[in-house]
Simulated assay, not measured.
Amino acid sequence: MTCGYLLPWAIATTRGKSNAEVIGAINFFAGWTVIGWFVALGMAVGSHRVAGVRVWSPPGT
């Protein structure tokens, strides 16, 4: 049962999600409710989002 309870956090960690700590906290504190567990699972399997990309080129090029 413990493995199933922590499944959303494990998925987020293995996928390299940047908010794996948040997913783990939601899973730990609200995962005992079915809704909290599904919220954490949804966040874990959701797509990765890029906040922004900065392109730098040296001066004079």
Rank of each mutant, 00 (worst) to 15 (best):
Val34Ser: 08
Gly42Trp: 00
Phe28Gln: 00
Thr33Glu: 10
Ala12Val: 11
Ala40His: 00
Thr14Gly: 05
Arg49Trp: 07
Phe28Cys: 08
Val53Cys: 05
Val55Leu: 04
Thr61Lys: 11
Ala44Asn: 05
Phe38Cys: 11
Glu21His: 10
Thr14Asp: 08
Ile35Thr: 10
Leu41Val: 02
Ala12Arg: 01
Ile23Asn: 04
Val53Trp: 04
Arg15Gln: 10
Trp37Asn: 09
Ser47Thr: 14
Phe38Leu: 15
Phe38Gln: 13
Ser18Val: 08
Asn27Tyr: 03
Leu6Thr: 15
Val34Ala: 02
Thr13His: 12
Leu6Val: 08
Gly24Phe: 02
Ala30Pro: 03
Trp32Arg: 10
Gly42Phe: 00
Asn27Ile: 07
Gly31Gln: 05
Trp9Gln: 04
Leu41Met: 14
Pro8His: 02
Val55Ser: 00
Ala10Cys: 13
Pro8Gly: 03
Val55His: 02
Asn27Asp: 11
Arg54Asp: 07
Leu6Met: 09
Trp32Gln: 04
Ala20Thr: 11
His48Gln: 06
Gly42His: 00
Val55Trp: 10
Gly42Lys: 02
Thr33His: 05
Ser47Ile: 14
Ser47Val: 11
Ile35Met: 07
Val39Asp: 03
Gly36His: 06
Val45Gly: 03
Ala30Leu: 13
Glu21Lys: 15
Asn19Trp: 05
Ala44Pro: 03
Gly42Met: 01
Phe38Glu: 09
Val34Cys: 06
Ile11Cys: 01
Ile35Asp: 11
Val39Met: 04
Thr2Glu: 15
Ile26Asp: 08
Arg15Ala: 09
Gly24Glu: 04
Val34Lys: 10
Ser47Met: 08
Gly4Asn: 14
Thr61Leu: 12
Pro59Gly: 13
Val39Trp: 01
Met43Glu: 13
Ile23Met: 09
Val50Gly: 01
Arg49Asn: 06
Arg54Ile: 13
Ala51Trp: 08
Ala44Cys: 06
Gly24Pro: 00
Ala25Phe: 15
Val39Ala: 04
Arg54Trp: 07
Pro8Arg: 00
Val22Lys: 04
Asn19Gly: 05
Glu21Met: 15
Ile26Ser: 00
Gly31Lys: 06
Met1Ala: 12
Val50Ile: 01
Gly52Glu: 15
Ser47Gln: 14
Phe28Ala: 07
Lys17His: 03
Ile11Gly: 00
Arg54Phe: 06
Val53Met: 12
Arg54Val: 12
Leu7Gly: 01
Gly24Asn: 00
Val39Lys: 03
Val50Ala: 03
Asn19Phe: 08
Ser47His: 03
Asn27Pro: 05
Leu7Met: 08
